[in-house]
Design a binder for these strands. Structure first.
Lengths: 231, 231
DNA sequence: GCCATTTGTGGTCGTATTGGTCACGACCGG
DNA sequence: CCGGTCGTGACCAATACGACCACAAATGGC
């Protein structure tokens, strides 16, 4: 169970988040605070005994900002994960919280589905972080930071020559389905699809659906890049 | 130009990173340190005058850990971005640095191409962070955190492409019945209804009834999330 | 005013047609 | 001979459409 501290100055919000959290597997409400100072001391008091794993932290509180709370925790080396949940959206606050290492930043209000999705994502992140004991590899660290590089090398089974043919066809011909592209290029649908999918995941193509017929809709691939590529 | 401070106790590494950085557009070596204490005071001294934008931070240094350096900076509210560059790979150090909000964590040694790619990614990140002034949207924040990948899986029979079309239509068009939305989107009423129901159960849409016409009343779907929260 | 009828939509079920993947083989360059 | 690239055919799964029935309000006859 992920021992969670909920911090919010509004009693109704506190109640809401508590009920939300109760509906998600793996989380346990281990404490609640209605103020900044109380939050800091709660985390620090429990540090030795039964430390919190996660803090759901509001920013606007009468006796201090959530930013200051997080700063105090970081300064005291409290190793606790934090998800900001707040109505504050100004860029400076967001930037500061991100710099202080929040895992998530949720803007109120949001439906339960969003809350559940983000918390579940955190649970998986935590599992992953826990599973890597001892030495971590660069790719494990990247996964932890969630900052994948974006320029993936060509996967196995794809050749640059064919890739260029496919891109050339798509750039000139507009939206094409995988079958149509295969016909035009003299390739098989299976092979073309591999290239089209790779181009899509690279952000060069865009997928959309073609409706209207009786059966399953066709997915069509379209050029996505702005015509004047930046730099 | 991104004013960068390089911190490493090894003179050769310092030299290497300096030459690396000089080869990448947009970066400027604004200082160098060979120790933990020097790094902290360098950042703090410059905080008012010409603050550093980025610190390339080693962990193992004779007079203190890079983790302590970062902790001290965070405690002093120094708003500076940090990329860890170190040979230390143990899970605990990585976890602590991530919690303290490093933007990247690079494991030495690495080829120049990796260095360039990561630094360029940071430059783009910085551009994006700078471009969002004033109020940030949730999606902008997600992009900043780089954790947008973990989306909840859709129920069977629904596709993300269609879902996005439906949400886009509902967000712009106000209250619509299932039939009206189907007409606008070029889909069948049955299909649209599944998406509308899913969005409703996710809390993104709200249902209400429309009376007055002959026949059974229509249920209309409306955007539920307050587009501009006043607080 | 009460009840049958009309009317148009809500919701479910089957079906059509494509998507996605796997196994296997062919070809080609080293 | 081996590793990589592509074709073929077949399979199951996915996702939309059409048709059908049920339902809830307005309408009209009594």
């Amino acid at each position: 169970m992920i021992r969670t501290l909920i911090v919010d100055d509004d009693a109704l919000t506190l109640e809401l988040h508590r009920s939300y959290l109760a509906r998600i597997d793996g989380f346990e409400v281990a404490g609640e605070c209605t103020g900044a100072r109380a939050a800091v001391s709660a985390v620090l008091d429990r540090a030795r005994d039964q430390p919190f794993d996660l803090v759901l932290l509001d920013i606007t509180m009468p006796d201090g900002s959530g930013i200051d709370v997080l700063r105090a925790l970081r300064a005291r080396a409290a190793s606790v994960d934090v998800i900001a949940i707040t109505g504050v959206r100004d860029a400076e606050s967001v930037r500061q919280m991100v710099a202080l290492g929040v895992y998530q930043y949720l803007v109120k209000p949001f439906p339960f589905a969003v809350f559940e999705e983000r918390l579940s994502a955190y649970r998986e992140y935590r599992e992953q972080a826990r599973s890597t004991a001892g030495e971590a590899t660069q790719s494990e660290i990247d996964a932890l930071l969630g900052r994948s590089t974006g320029v993936a090398p060509l996967p196995k089974g794809l050749s640059t020559a064919t890739l260029q043919k496919v891109t050339a066809e798509l750039r000139t011909a507009g939206a094409l389905s995988a079958s149509e592209a295969a016909l035009r290029l003299g390739l098989s649908r299976v092979s073309v699809r591999r290239y089209l999918e790779h181009l899509t995941s690279s952000g060069i193509l865009r997928r959309s659906a073609r409706y209207g017929a009786r059966g399953r809709p066709e997915t069509e691939y379209e050029w996505n890049r702005p015509i004047d590529g930046p730099e």
